[in-house]
Simulated assay, not measured.
Amino acid sequence: MKKLVSLSLCLSLSLFAVARAMKPAQILAVVAKSDQKKSAGKKADGKTLLDDANKALAAMIKAARADNGLDPKTPKNKPFWKSTQLIAKNLKMAKTGLSAKSNDFFKGVTGARQAEEQMKVDWELTDSKNKEVIENGKTLGHAIALLRTNFSKEAARKRKGGELTTKEKADFDKIKAQQKELLAKIAKLEAGAKKDKALEKGLREIKKQAEHLLKEPATVDAYIATLYLLDTQIGLVRGYEYYVDKPWRDDYLWFVNWTNGYETSYYAWEDSVSYDWALVDTSVDIHDSEEVAVSESVSEEEINSEEAYAENESFDMSEAEEEEVAAEEDTDEEVASADDDSMEDASDDEGEDMSDDDSGDDEGTDDNGGDDDGGNDDGGDDGGD
């Protein structure tokens, strides 16, 4: 009995020592992944997820149109409607591309993912607390993220595994060089944007992502996760454009031009890579935190009607309106704060943990670099954690 007690005590002390050696973020990551494995829910293939995204978008638009506080003629609401319009157009492209088995499917999904991230930033400008819009927006984000990280050419490359090719290494190095340049531009802009807490918050988030990317090892998993994270970064850059006051708008234009330049090279890569279209018929797990079904019934007629509205309505802003919105958010504490009225959702922020070691060590502790972004070869969890 004494031996058993001693053994139990030793084991407890050993576990305590391991826990003490781990960083809080690492402990939470282990717990989260353990919980996630236990909470596998339903499955869905590419077409089903695209349908889910369209339903969630229609439900979100319907709820927003019914809210007078989200009137698209009000300047501060226009950025939200403009990004919603981008999502609608890109999902339409994805649907057409899937039917034709063309690259428009991938372009549409990627564009929708970027626009969805932009929408979450633009939503904060509205000051709206409409729970129905928020929940449908989160559901939309889940569906798009799962499409992006399971039915993309990146996901297919991850399944293939192996080492980075010479071209992939060169592309990865180019991305990192661009991120270094991005950090230098952020440092310059931060100095002039200190009075603008919301913009400062956005720059801080973009900076955090850039610094994270620079530390990633040259592995396939880390490379693929980087491409996913760039969707988020591009969405942030475009979303925060409406927060920029006139004095430093020219400086911020560099960031916008960078996103356009990156997209051009990215789509050239995407066009050059083949894809096995049988993969879109493969079902992937949907975890409890990745709900993709809207709570209300949405008919096909409603989907077509709401999306047609978003696609065809004009949400253009005059220069005076842009200046008004940027000036107004300078003093709006709610815009800069993170609260329950945000559309931010951890489950669709893919690429946040691209390697097992998030300590900032360039070498990392895991030779695989990014294996913790999915945990399996089919890439099913890249964007859901």
Rank of each mutant, 00 (worst) to 15 (best):
D340M: 06
D339P: 02
G370S: 14
D358A: 08
S359F: 01
D339G: 06
D366I: 01
E329W: 05
S318M: 09
N368K: 15
E333W: 13
E322M: 08
T365R: 05
T331M: 07
E323Q: 02
D367G: 15
G369D: 12
A327V: 00
T331N: 13
A326P: 01
G360C: 05
F315L: 03
D361Y: 05
A326L: 01
E350T: 03
E344Y: 13
A327W: 00
G360L: 03
E363S: 08
E319I: 02
N368C: 15
A326G: 02
E329C: 08
M317Y: 03
D330L: 14
G369Y: 11
V335S: 04
E329H: 11
D362F: 04
E334I: 04
E328M: 11
M317R: 05
G360V: 01
D348M: 14
D341L: 04
D357C: 10
D332N: 10
A346F: 13
E334P: 03
A327E: 03
E323Y: 00
G369K: 07
D361I: 04
E352D: 11
D316V: 09
G370Q: 13
D356I: 05
S347D: 04
A320S: 11
D366L: 06
D366F: 05
D367Y: 06
E321S: 00
M343F: 05
D339N: 13
D353Y: 15
S355E: 10
E363W: 06
A320K: 08
E363I: 02
G369R: 11
S342C: 03
S359A: 03
A326Q: 00
D341F: 05
V335T: 11
E352Y: 12
E344I: 07
G360N: 08
S355Q: 11
M317T: 08
M343C: 07
V335M: 07
S314C: 13
V335F: 12
E334C: 06
S318Y: 05
M343H: 10
E324L: 02
D353N: 15
E344Q: 06
E323I: 02
E319R: 04
T365W: 04
M343D: 12
A326W: 00
M317V: 02
F315M: 02
D353P: 11
E333H: 11
E324Y: 01
D330Y: 12
E323V: 03
T331D: 09
T331H: 06
D366T: 05
D348R: 14
D361P: 02
G364N: 14
D366A: 10
N368F: 12
D345A: 10
E328C: 03
D348Q: 14
D349M: 15
D339C: 02
S359E: 05
A326V: 00
D339L: 01
S342M: 01
E328P: 02
S342W: 01
E313N: 15
D341R: 01
E324P: 01
T365Q: 08
D348I: 07
A346Y: 14
E363C: 04
E334T: 10
G370F: 15
S342Q: 02
E319S: 14
D358F: 06
D348A: 09
S337F: 08
E322D: 05
D332M: 07
E344W: 12
T365H: 07
S337W: 09
A346G: 06
M354Q: 12
D358Y: 12
G351P: 09
D316E: 10
E323W: 00
A346V: 11
V335N: 10
G364I: 09
S347H: 04
E363Y: 06
S318D: 08
S342G: 03
V335H: 09
A346H: 13
G369W: 10
N368G: 15
S347T: 06
